[in-house]
Design a protein around this nucleic acid. Structure first.
Lengths: 106, 106
DNA sequence: CTAATATTTGGCTATTTTGCCAAATATACC
DNA sequence: GGTATATTTGGCAAAATAGCCAAATATTAG
């Protein structure tokens, strides 16, 4: 494996890792219907304001979302909408897992 | 958020988390061209045999790959091939990131 | 049965990630 | 200016993850 390939793998992993957290995944899914400010997330997520803010920072640094400050609030929106489309494949894995589970149970 | 939705988010996160590691991502990509046994991965991955085996276990438990023992070897193959197709979206994020980077540099 | 090969498992430490709190920063309003 | 609101940042402790080694297991060959 070349150094370049390694870099590319690490970059892709970073994007996946950003999505690989229940709260971050949920927030990403929420953004499908349009931008939201941090406070809107905080209301629904039962987590500290700082925690939500940090999660959004992770998504931002991965390049999945972008933010814009308007007045006192910071609004986040999807930067690369396809992340939601590819989630359908993750669902497919879940369905496959459920089938395996069902098969085991007879 | 209902308990059911929470479960679903956690399940999806587990799948994403399994892919969110350079070595596991690489191994998953390698399986695109067909099954491989653990020893083949070990030769190319500069990591301990046990480490590679554990990574494969993570992918297996997430439902991304399945294994089959034949003789002394254990062969792994993709169980849900779409995981590679959705990787094209992750690439799209990388391209988007590169563009942002380029824009910053003027 | 014994030896050799392929793989998994257990255990341990180092590193990374999470999430809270408190403090800092930014913006609008008075 | 001072105050209230929205958000980020720094710091810390708890939890999760990674990767190595050694030991256990399984299979084949002799």
């Amino acid at each position: 494996m070349t150094a370049k390939e390694k870099k590319r793998l690490e970059a892709k992993s970073k994007v996946l890792k950003a999505l690989a957290h229940p709260t971050r995944l949920w927030m990403t899914e929420q953004l499908e219907s349009g931008e939201k400010c941090v406070c809107e997330f905080v209301e629904e997520v039962d987590a500290d304001f700082s925690t939500v803010s940090k999660h959004l920072t992770v998504l931002k640094q991965a390049g999945i979302v972008e933010d814009e400050k308007r007045g006192k609030q910071v609004y986040y929106r999807l930067k690369v909408p396809c992340v939601l489309k590819f989630m359908s494949c993750v669902e497919e894995v879940l369905i496959s897992n459920a089938k395996s589970q069902a098969a085991l149970l007879g």
